Amino acid sequence: MQMSDRDPPPFWDPESDDVLVCRAVRRQTHDVATFILTAAQPRRFRYTPGQFMTFTVRIDGAEIHRCYTLSSSPSRPDSVAITVKRVPGGPVSNWLHDHLRPGMDIAALGPMGDFTLDPPRDAAPEKYLFLSAGSGITPVMSMARNLIDTRFDVDAVFLHSARSPEDLIFARELAWMAEQAPSFRVRSICERDTPQNRWPGAMGRLDAALLAREVPDLCDRHVFVCGPEGYRASVRALVGQAGLDMAHFHEESFDFGVLAAEEPDIPAQIEALDAARHKVSFTRSRREIECGADTFVLSAARAAGMRLPASCAKGMCGTCKCKLVSGTVDMQHDGGIRQREIDQGMILICCARPTSDLVIER
Rank of each mutant, 00 (worst) to 15 (best):
V186F: 13
A62M: 11
H160T: 08
I289L: 04
S326A: 12
G134F: 11
R58L: 12
A208R: 14
V25C: 07
P195G: 01
D114S: 14
P91C: 02
F152T: 12
G315W: 00
I59D: 12
D78A: 14
T54H: 01
R145Q: 10
H30P: 07
R286W: 05
T194G: 05
A313T: 08
F11K: 05
H30K: 10
N197G: 03
A268Y: 01
M203C: 09
S311C: 12
G230A: 11
M141A: 10
C350I: 12
V87Y: 00
V239R: 07
D245Q: 09
S183C: 08
G315D: 04
T38N: 08
L308R: 03
S183P: 01
M141E: 02
F256P: 00
M1N: 09
P119A: 15
P228R: 03
V25Q: 08
V87G: 00
G335T: 04
P77L: 13
G292C: 13
E361Y: 07
E15F: 08
R58C: 13
T38K: 12
I342M: 14
G113H: 03
E191Y: 06
V80H: 02
A40G: 06
C67M: 05
V235I: 14
R277T: 14
P165C: 10
T150G: 04
S253M: 13
R232H: 04
R185A: 13
L244C: 10
P111H: 05
P9M: 04
C219H: 08
F256R: 01
S135G: 06
H333W: 07
P74A: 04
D357H: 05
R362Y: 10
